[in-house]
């Protein structure tokens, strides 16, 4: 797929055949090439002032997430407070991009976050499996939006996608997007279950065609979560999508990103694949929980000149 293609998209709505032919007409992903490229970009060395800037940007891109059955209102309140002031000892530390919780916890987080500029994301549509009837998923979405979420993370039906029922997945995303109203829609592809890079590319295009504002790699609930090559394939998809339609779509790798080193590799990947336009919390997010503490520890090391320890940062 070349970025210079400017041909208009065919009309895909309402035709399962057209959608299928379009997705299968996308060029295949060179598996060896994409893995080698991601590995090569992962070796860049980012130090001193560039590292400080990268850490602050990465903090501003974090979707601070807690998606556990054991989440309590107290934990969500603490997490929301941390989102606003990640490092209470240092007022120059920026807030994170958003807090991501289950729909039941949205009112609790909304109380803390309302009017602060930190977004409130909620997973919906029978997260994490997505195996529920459409009306349940839509009700889930509407409830979350009504409770105060301004970003919705939906999961696609991997079962339908892998069975080749692209139109089913497409219509589901369109319906959820409509239920979101003004809230941003992030579509979770769950790349760990899609088996191939070709499927990741197809799912990315499918989600973007159906109106996704963001495409997100994973739920964090399956063993294989975000990886650099998968994110690279998705970044190429959003780049090519903008080249063909003029609409910019964001990318959110989630799950398994735990260290500052990993986060900086993703930033290098954005810079080298899609450029500056995506180096912004509005267009790129990290779905993570433990990443933030590592970013804060590295930040403290840079500002104080000595190594930081995990005892000095909150667990949640």
């Amino acid at each position: 797929m070349t970025a210079t293609t400017t041909s208009r998209l065919p009309d895909l709505s309402g035709s399962a055949f057209n959608l299928r032919s379009f997705l299968h007409g996308l060029p295949g992903v060179d598996k060896v090439g994409v893995e080698a490229r991601a590995a090569a970009l992962g070796t860049r060395s980012v130090k001193t002032s560039a590292k400080a800037a990268a850490i602050d940007l990465a903090i501003r891109m974090v979707d601070l997430t807690t998606l556990e059955g054991a989440d309590t209102p107290g934990k969500v309140r603490a997490l929301s407070a941390k989102a606003l002031r990640p490092d209470p000892a240092d007022p120059t530390c920026p807030p994170v991009a958003a807090v991501c919780v289950y729909p039941a916890m949205v009112p609790v987080a909304a109380e803390v976050l309302r009017g602060t500029g930190v977004h409130l994301a909620s997973v919906a549509t029978a997260f994490p499996s997505g195996q529920a009837p459409l009306d349940v998923k839509l009700a889930d979405t509407r409830d979350a939006v009504a409770a105060g979420a301004d970003e919705i993370d939906m999961v696609i039906s991997r079962g339908a996608f892998l069975a080749g029922r692209y139109d089913h997945v497409y219509e589901e995303i369109v319906a959820v997007k409509e239920a979101c109203g003004s809230a941003h829609l992030k579509v979770i592809l769950e790349t760990g279950e899609l088996e191939t890079y070709d499927n990741v590319r197809r799912a990315s295009w499918l989600a973007m065609l159906a109106g996704a504002d963001f495409i997100k790699t994973s739920t964090g609930k399956v063993p294989v979560a975000a990886t650099l090559p998968v994110t690279l394939v998705m970044l190429e998809a959003v780049r090519d999508f903008r080249a063909r339609t003029g609409r910019q779509v964001g990318v959110k790798p989630a799950g398994g990103i735990r260290t500052t080193k990993d986060a900086i590799k993703y930033l290098v990947l954005i810079n080298e694949t899609v450029g500056d336009d995506w180096l912004d919390p509005d267009w790129f997010r990290f779905g993570a929980s433990s990443l933030l503490n590592d970013l804060l520890m590295q930040r403290t090391k840079l500002t104080t000149g000595h190594y930081a320890g995990p005892d000095y940062f909150t667990l949640d």
């Binding site: 403290t300 000149g305 000595h306 190594y307 930081a308 320890g309 995990p310 005892d311 000095y312």
Partner: peptide, 9 residues
């Protein structure tokens, strides 16, 4: 000195 200043020691 790096061990002395290290917060995790």
């Amino acid at each position: 000195p790096w061990l002395a200043s290290h917060d995790d020691v």
